[in-house]
Structures are given as structure tokens and as C-alpha cells.
Computed example of a mutant assay.
Amino acid sequence: MSVRQESATWVATLRRHTIPTELGPCTVRVQQGIGSGAPASGTPEVYLHGTAGSWATFRPLLSEASHHDRVLIDLPGWGESTKGARLEHFGIETMTRAVTDVLNLLNYPRWNLVGHSMGGFLALHIAATWPERTASVAAISPTTFGVSEAAREPLRSLSRFPAFVGMMLLMRSLAALGPAGLAMVRAVGATPVMGPLMSPFFADPPGMSAGVIRGLGHNARPASFSAAARAVAHYDFNQWRGIRCPVLATRGETDVFTSPSDLDRLAATVPQVQTVTIQHCGHFAHVEQPEQVQRLLEDMWSL
């Protein structure tokens, strides 16, 4: 494991680690909590991004210091964890082991998980797999039942989840082109065309900064997105009945990936779940409404 210090204006301490996993080297950043006696102390907040993200997606939530350590992971295949990523072994179980291996190497016995989109799905699976070590889960617009069905039967799901099906088919096509497909995504992501393409994911597209839109284009990974879609297509959601910790599950009022029925099914499956629909918000609540998301997180962690 290699470590180097990285400075940023919005953190007191941020250390960058490169940790080996079975899916390839994983880049992780750790911020020490206020008043914690060591870099690995207490129960950290662990942030898991979605398929169009990296650790940086959570920046709007992290403007103020926390009493908990924060662990910000670039999941294998995304962000700075792309070099050497073994996507041929990608699956929910292997991704879970990658995350828990990171946390074990950092000497954290328990954790609070915060996941967006795919990261929310992964957080729920980790909670089901490691119930004694998961203190809480906050799933922000988790891609669950509807997206799983759409990944399994895209044509039948086109009318209900057109944004996901369209993106999945596009990403599959681009992934087939290899490096050329990734280059095309990067090229488009740096142009004004990216704004209209991403507009379905936000309640107020004109209100999103150009930096946010460029970041989503920069973090898009066609092969990784396609691997994640394959992994969730035949998932057994009954596993989530074994989750023991408190769970917060949110969706945006205009969310195109997480439907109201997804939250209803989560409430019927997960024992201790609070579901919240965030008004004036799309799929990226932690970007569009970070103050409200932070209040919800603090309320859950204070219980």
C-alpha cells in the first residue's frame, strides 16, 4: 500500500492511498475526523460513487469537517482506479470484497456507508453481507429493482426506464470500441453537447455548473458501466432482508433511475429503512441538494 499527502482547501487532512484488491489497485482518500486520535479511529463515513462518478462526486457533501473519519473510494474501474482494473472479474461479490479489503487494511472494524446510484446498491449488499460490521447505510438514488429489470430485459423496460436503457445500450456500443470508445466519451464530455445529454438527470439543468457536467463526462467509463449493468441484472434482492442496521434511502422528485416503486419495494424488503423523496431534485441529490442530504445523514448518525 502506497501513501502520499494531498492538500485541498475543503479538508483539514486528506491522505491518498493505493490499495491492492482482486479487481486491481484501488485509489482511496482518507480524511481524519475532528478529535479522532488516529487516522483509523471510530466508525468512518465510507463514500461509494455511482457509475458516472468518482470520489469527487461527493465534494458538495464534504465542505465541512466531520467528527468521523471519511473514506473516499474510487471503485475499481473508475476515477483513479482504472489502471490495471480487472473488469472481467467484476461482480457484486468481487466489488464487495474490494471495498471491505480496503476498510480492513485501513483497520476499520465498522463503517457507515454512503452510496450513490450503483454505490447505493453496493452499500446495501455490503450491509447484507457484513451485518455485524455495517453501522448504517445511506443510499442516495440507489439503482435497485427497476434498473436490475431493465438491465435484464432492456426492450421490455424501455418505456419505464428510457434514460437507463438508452445509456446502457450506448455504453455497450462504446465499450465494444475499446480505447476509441472512451476517447469519444471524453471528447464529447468536453463540449457544450454534454449539457443537453445530462439534462434528464437534474431537476434544474441550467442551474448545474459547467464543472459538474464536465466531471460527469470525464468520469464516464463505458466498459465499467457495462460490467456493472451485467452484474445487477440477475441479483437476488432477498439478500437484503438480512440487513440489520438503519437504512436511509432517497430519490429525487424527478429521478429517472430510481422510481417511487423502488422505494416502496425497499421498504417491503429492508427491515429498518426510512425512505425520502427529495423535492426539486433529480438523480444527484448530493450535488443538487447537498444541505438537505447532509441533514438527513446527520439525523441518521445521531440516532
Rank of each mutant, 00 (worst) to 15 (best):
T191G: 13
S66E: 09
F225W: 05
T134F: 06
S63D: 07
W130V: 03
A163T: 10
S7T: 08
M118Y: 03
L296Q: 08
Q239D: 13
F164E: 06
R70Q: 09
D204Q: 10
R110V: 01
E45A: 14
W78I: 05
A229Q: 08
V193P: 12
Y108K: 01
V114L: 12
Q279A: 14
Q274F: 14
S259E: 08
S136N: 09
E149W: 07
G252T: 04
L297V: 15
M171I: 07
P205H: 12
P222R: 01
A231F: 01
A98T: 00
G178F: 01
S209F: 00
F161D: 06
G217T: 04
M118K: 05
S261C: 03
F58T: 02
T129E: 15
R110C: 03
V46W: 10
R244A: 01
S159W: 04
Y108H: 04
L266Q: 09
V28P: 00
V11F: 09
C281S: 13
V147I: 06
V270T: 00
A180T: 15
P76H: 00
N104L: 13
S261N: 06
I92V: 14
S173P: 03
E298G: 12
L48F: 04
P154I: 01
D299R: 10
V188M: 11
W240Y: 03
A138W: 05
T57Y: 02
P142Q: 09
S148C: 05
L266M: 14
S141P: 00
S199D: 10
V185C: 13
C281V: 14
S66Q: 06
Q32N: 05
L87P: 10
A176K: 11
G120T: 01
T254S: 06
Q274I: 15
H89V: 03
L155H: 12
A123P: 02
S7K: 07
T82G: 11
Q239R: 15
V232I: 09
E153A: 11
W78H: 08
S224G: 10
P260Y: 05
S54P: 10
R59Q: 13
P205V: 13
M118L: 08
V102H: 07
A180K: 15
T258D: 03
R133H: 03
D299C: 10
G189K: 06
V188A: 15
G79L: 07
T134N: 02
T43P: 04
A65F: 01
V270H: 02
Q5A: 06
N219V: 09
M95D: 06
L177P: 04
G50I: 02
E88R: 15
T82V: 09
L75Q: 10
H280T: 12
A183M: 13
R133G: 00
H280C: 10
A128R: 01
L106V: 05
T51C: 11
A180Q: 15
I92A: 15
T277V: 13
G35D: 04
V30S: 07
W301E: 11
V293Q: 06
S173M: 14
H125I: 05
